[in-house]
């Protein structure tokens, strides 16, 4: 398909999005990422029945935790797409990259930069 998506998006493979824990998401932000998204299978098509539904609930909960901390919850999202939707994968990657660009660097990074300066 030779579709392009931003090179700064790093993919972490999991056997099912049901494996994604709240702490996995928080640790990413703690490490200083500007944004993260979970790409699960289409709803109703989970091989493990409810993995992607559970992942969505966890993402929603993790967003409330980020808001508590003062990090924009929009920096974390959940998407559903099938393995056959390459074009959608690239579109989501570009959409998320654009959103993060408009939000700017993570507030954690900004604070660190200000502290060092």
């Amino acid at each position: 398909m030779r579709l392009n998506y931003p090179t700064f998006i790093k993919i972490i493979k999991v056997p099912c999005t049901g494996r994604v824990d709240i702490l996995t998401l928080l640790k990413a932000f703690e490490a200083g990422v500007d944004g993260a998204y979970v790409a699960g299978c289409m709803e109703g098509e989970c091989h493990f029945l409810k993995g992607n539904i559970r992942a969505r609930k966890r993402v929603e909960y993790a967003k409330t935790l980020l808001a508590e901390v003062g990090i924009e919850p929009e920096r974390l999202e959940m998407y559903n797409l099938s393995a056959a939707q390459g074009a959608r994968f690239a579109a989501i990657a570009n959409e998320m990259a654009e959103k993060i660009r408009s939000l700017g660097p993570s507030p954690l990074k900004k604070a660190k930069a200000a502290f060092v300066a």
């Binding site: 709240i22 702490l23 928080l26 640790k27 932000f29 935790l65 901390v69 003062g70 604070a111 660190k112």
Partner: peptide
């Protein structure tokens, strides 16, 4: 143990944000 991890992560982020 899990909630301890979550709260620790939240506190570290909130404090780092404030320098």
């Amino acid at each position: 143990e899990r909630e301890v991890g979550v709260l620790a992560s939240e506190l570290k982020m909130a404090r780092a944000k404030d320098g």
